[in-house]
Amino acid sequence: MLKINCPFCGPRTEDEFTCGGQSHIARPVTPAEVSDQQWADYLYQRINPKGVHYERWRHTFGCRQWFNVARDTVSHEIYAVYQMGEPKPSITEKGV
C-alpha cells in the first residue's frame, strides 16, 4: 500500500487515488503536420522505465485534483510530489 502525499489534502492511502500514467507528454502543436509515426508515438509510445517514473495521479476519492509524482517502479518509493505544469525534479539514486 502506498502512502501518497496529496499536495492539497496531505497524506492519504493509495486506494483514494488513480494513476494516470506517464506525465509530461506533449501533444504535437500542429497535429495535421506530423507523420503517422509521430502521432502514434504521441498516442502510444511510453518510456516504461525500470527505475524513476514521472507520472500523473488524481486524488479521485478526495479533492479530485491532478498532480505529478516521481516514483520508483521497482521499490515503489515515492521521491517527490509536485504540481501539474511544474518541471520534473531531478532524482538521484537516493531521492531528491
Partner: peptide
C-alpha cells in the same frame, strides 16, 4: 495492479 511496476509483489488494494 493499477500502475507501472517492475516489483514482482502486487499491491494490497
Amino acid at each position: 495492479d493499477s500502475y507501472t511496476s517492475y516489483g514482482q509483489r502486487g499491491n494490497l488494494p
